[in-house]
Design a protein around this nucleic acid. Structure first.
Length: 548
RNA sequence: GCACCUGUAGCUCAACAGGUUAGAGCGCAGGCCUCCGGAGCCUGAGGUUGGGGGUUCGACUCCCCCCAGGUGCACCA
């Protein structure tokens, strides 16, 4: 709706850009939507603010969407026509959702969203849950509004950690065989219970693994360990309703020679130098506070070098914008990566990191101490078992990623009304139940013609108006989330809509309405609510419940 | 020390691109179905938006300086 109005205002004024339109439906006396267009354009058009809004109100009042347009100083207050809103909602197609892409800065770009990208050296940690929820919801929204987005999981199956992972497994193998073993001897080794399970499974396939040369044993242990962990991670993510378009392996990036190619390119550009037996990249030339090592003294690539190569490879694959969703513990990595991208000659907006702030999990009001390496962590799968997929996702999506959050496990377990996910899901179930009842008693969803007729006799109440106007705002709300790179706009919108539905439901009878025309209108409203709210459920990745 | 994030009602958080009277939920006080699902609704109390300057017709929002909390500052990933 706002896109329609904005374009018309721009047309009347003969300006290219669309002015700000605010949703003022919950405020009294400001119309359904309002725009400070008079103030915004006064300087540019060299006219008085109220002169601009006066002209607009006169010229736009005849439009089919306008019920009434008032101006107050530089503000234009717009009241929308009921029939037009319903017609808009009735005819909202996938193509019209896809039209919104043009109003986002990412329009026309090939976008990649890389998230989770956990090490395949253990099960997914509960802290992965936030990035996974945000990433998947964001990609859902991107795709729905017609942005060209691809989701990707980077499998960190190369490098030093993998070696430690394999050595940890081998120590556990020794332990199982009753040989002397010392897991503590591996610095930064993996001590979790799951390592023992991997060791057991390895022994089933390779009973004599300890007789192999160490290199070979490490290879066998890491390969099998990685594939088991990856299988486990994929299963949990599937349960968590997180799917990836592409799974890209670090090992493959290395094998395909991207690291050499990228380092050679940087060398050719004169951006590297040797010092202290290592090869360095001059990231300070591009804003980093320190130069970074690409090749270590021992001849191995740093994680940084491989990651630069991986991102260069993303560029070669044709992505214009790459969103990496990282935990705040990776903050230190951002500056050097951006510097490296600049060094490679990529545009400033190529790599955009969405930093997800820390999540603390509270139990009995106290933060739980979690340490991955020590093996005392809480798993994402455990969180799902505890609070359910819907509550976990919803809770993570509710907050802006910039905000560090506390996840109160006791509260989420309660499955009570404290938990907003039930509030939202209940609104959908309630509307659905109403529609079901209507169908049972032979009341059908009205056609547009029937609505036009009904609205000549019936004037909607405030509650009905509020719901209608806000349902018609759905595309704008999706655009906000996409533009600002956070699903929390959509979640809050869903919460607002749910409240409006409950409020409407409580104040007006639908099936046994006071008049036929009132019932026709309300049935349409309920039906459109189900449509919009259902979409929001899908985008957030929470279940649409027929019964609760 | 430097960089980034955060600071809004008792608590957890919103506030769209700077826009009209800063909003929800929980909690608190009171009220509401003989009736479509009460997991709900309505009313009320509760705010100097951490502090101080500045820009602007207009600042929670932008700029500067403080204060407080968090995170990061590896030849780890």
């Amino acid at each position: 709706m706002r896109f329609v109005i904005g374009k018309e205002i721009a047309n009347v004024l003969g300006v290219g850009n669309i002015p700000e339109i605010r949703n003022t439906s919950t405020e009294k006396g400001k119309g359904d939507f309002s725009s400070p267009v008079g103030f915004m354009m006064a300087k540019r058009l060299k006219r008085r603010p109220d002169d601009i809004t006066k002209e607009l109100s006169e010229k736009l009042s005849t439009k089919p969407w306008a019920e009434k347009i008032e101006y107050k100083g530089g503000f234009l207050n717009i009241y929308l026509a009921h029939y037009y809103l319903l017609e808009h909602l009735y005819t909202l197609s996938d193509e019209q959702y896809k039209d919104i892409a043009q109003f986002t800065p990412q329009h026309g770009k090939k976008i990649q969203v890389e998230y989770v990208s956990a090490n395949p050296t253990g099960p997914l940690h509960v802290a992965h849950g936030r990035g996974a929820a945000v990433g998947s919801a964001l990609v859902n929204i991107f795709k729905h509004i017609g942005l060209d987005a691809t989701s990707e999981f980077y499998i960190n199956d190369g490098g030093e950690q993998i070696k430690k992972f394999a050595l940890s497994i081998l120590e556990r193998v020794k332990e199982i065989k009753g040989l002397p073993s010392d897991i503590e001897s591996i610095e930064g080794g993996y001590k979790g219970e799951y390592i023992k399970n991997i060791a057991k499974q390895i022994l089933e396939t390779y009973p004599n693994i300890l007789d192999m040369p160490l290199d070979k044993a490490i290879e066998v242990a890491s390969d099998l360990g990685i594939s088991l962990m990856l299988r486990d991670q994929k299963a949990v993510l599937k349960t968590y309703r997180v799917m990836f378009d592409v799974w890209r392996s670090e090992k493959d990036i290395r094998k395909e020679g991207w690291v050499e190619k990228t380092i050679n390119l940087l060398k050719e550009k004169g951006l590297t130098y040797e010092a202290e037996g290592a090869l360095w990249l001059k990231t300070t030339a591009f804003g980093d506070d320190k130069d970074r090592v690409l090749i270590k003294q021992n001849g191995e690539y740093t994680y940084f070098a491989v990651d630069v190569a991986y991102h260069f490879e993303k560029h070669i694959r044709g992505f214009d914008i790459v969103y990496d969703i990282w935990g705040s513990d990776h903050y230190g990595h951002i500056g050097r990566m951006k510097a490296a991208m600049k060094g490679l000659g990529l545009p400033d907006d190529f790599l955009q990191v969405i930093v997800i702030q820390i999540v603390r999990f509270l139990k009995d009001g106290e933060p739980i101490k979690m340490s991955k390496r020590a093996g005392t962590f809480t798993l994402l799968s455990e969180l799902i078992d505890l609070v359910g997929v819907d509550a976990a996702r919803f809770y993570f999506l509710m907050y802006s990623p910039d905000n560090s959050m506390d996840f109160d496990l006791d509260l989420a377990v309660k499955k009570s009304m404290d938990n907003p996910v039930y509030y939202v899901q209940y609104s959908y179930t309630r509307a659905l139940s109403l529609k079901r009842k209507a169908e049972e008693s032979g009341v059908s969803i009205p056609t547009l013609d029937e609505l036009k007729d009904a609205l000549e006799k019936y004037t909607p109440s405030d509650e009905e108006r509020l719901l209608l106007v806000n349902l018609a705002d759905v595309r704008y709300q999706l655009m906000l989330s996409a533009k600002n790179l956070s699903p929390h706009y959509v979640v809050n919108y869903a919460k607002d809509l749910a409240g409006m539905l409950h409020s409407f439901y409580q104040s007006k009878r639908v099936l046994d309405a006071e008049s036929g025309s009132a019932r026709v209108f309300r049935m349409a409203l309920v039906d459109r609510f189900i449509e919009v709210m259902g979409l929001l459920h899908d985008l957030m990745g929470i279940e649409k419940k027929e019964h609760m």
